[in-house]
Design a protein around this nucleic acid. Structure first.
Length: 138
DNA sequence: CTCGGAACAA
DNA sequence: TTGTTCCGAG
């Protein structure tokens, strides 16, 4: 049921299946956690809180409480904390969106399976993609 | 800290 | 379905 048609003709550019996921009734209205993480990762002002580190796709949460606070604000969940946020992150393991970098504290890694090119405006492209991809399956 | 079951919300 | 909340176990 998770079938989305790629819409970017851009050569040398590919996003994982889970990247395009405008499903659900609200139609991509609701912010996904992984999207939010990517959003923070994209902004330099949050490098003291969360930042890329290590291999491609690997990031470390330097300030769990702050990330949880920001996520709580975004989702209107005042009582959010890293414990609960990380539970949501753990659900991503089976969805193959994230993986844990064991041994390293607060460190996770995105499953950019076949993505080439690293320094690209990921979110802008992802957003544009979500806009033009039309779901045909419920 | 990290993991994952279970109940529950939207 | 994706998260949220609670929580025992490792």
């Amino acid at each position: 049921m998770r079938k989305a048609a790629p819409c970017l003709p851009s050569p040398g550019f590919a996003f994982p299946d889970w990247a395009y996921k405008p499903e659900s009734s609200p139609g991509s209205r609701q912010i996904q956690l992984w999207h939010f993480i990517l959003e923070l990762l994209q902004k330099e002002e949050y490098q003291g809180v969360i930042a890329w580190q290590g291999d491609y796709g690997e990031f470390v949460i330097k300030d769990p409480d702050e990330v949880a606070r920001l996520w709580g604000i975004r989702k209107c969940k005042p009582h959010m904390n890293y414990d609960k946020l990380s539970r949501a992150l753990r659900y991503y393991y089976n969805k193959r969106i994230l993986h844990k970098t064991k041994g390293k504290r607060f460190t996770y890694k995105f499953n950019f399976s076949k993505v080439v090119l690293v320094n690209y405006p990921l979110l802008d492209v992802a957003a544009a993609c979500c806009t033009c991809v039309r779901e045909e399956d419920r």
